[in-house]
Amino acid sequence: MNMAWMVVRRLFHAFVLVLAVLVLNFLLIHLAPGDPADVIAGEMGGATEEMLADIRKTYGLDKPIYVQLGVYLERALQGDLGQSFFYNAPVLDLVAGRAGATILLVVTALLFAIAVGTLLGVLASHKPKGIVSGLVTLVSVVGYSAPIFWTGLMLVILFAWVIPIFPIANMFDITKDTGFFGFILDVLHHLVLPALTLGIVYLAQYARLTRASMLEILGSDYIRTARAKGVAETKVYTHHALRNAILPVVTIAGLQFGSIVSGAVLVETVFSWPGLGTLAFESILARDYPTVLGILFFSSVLVIIANLITDLVYRIVDPRIRTGG
């Protein structure tokens, strides 16, 4: 299949999904009990009658429902996700201001999980009944069953009380003035615990997955071929087997992106990481619905983008998909 045509189709598909999320937001506003104008204003926005009238006019709330939907979609696609009365700022600005921190956290955790997870998986596959294998199974069962926010809190106890080496809250230390690189280092230092907490659950899953697919692949004919032509054992693992074993990890990582964002909400709350999760938490407590819905929308768009990237990566690592075979 033509690559360009494929890209166009994927993009169109993604666009439809974005629209669908907006329609869902619109429905939520109208399905919630009470006056939609009140929902849009936010319960604790201290909305006056004048403001509500203003909202009704802007969103055409006196018009038929499909006109309202049209108005809502048009505004949203122009980047107007509404106004937060609680923060007294456009929702888009609020979300954009916090998105960077969340993306940093999620991407770091994901890359960490994939890198270390596959490494552990490969080591475990070398000795299927060895210590690393047992450890991988144990950590994945524990990581799967422990609530992520609790894991985070346990790390807080460990690294604040027992061995205090990592900061346990916020993204940087505002009392320090260390210049640009100092700032970067400070952020990375603060990032360690949140990223570790978020990453560890997925790390264990990827390690288990890599181990299983490595074991299957190591018994395959083409690995025998590689050995038969004199490839050294290390290279058999890292080059011939891993390249194939990574495929299911890529698939799962893409599918799980939504769940990682969900996990980030909890982890951010635990570590006061100033991202979308803490914003969502604060605005929910404040009944600031436009902001909450804006975050739901924006994070869904993040997942859609992540899915597009996964698709692309998969095409790069698996030639069978690339050429439509």
Partner: peptide, 21 residues
């Protein structure tokens, strides 16, 4: 199904439990 997989589940659930009593 795909649409529901795109929504970060916890955020969506958070929205639902705040919009409804």
């Amino acid at each position: 199904t795909e649409f529901f997989q795109v929504l970060p589940a916890l955020l969506f659930a958070m929205v639902l439990v705040t919009l409804f009593p």
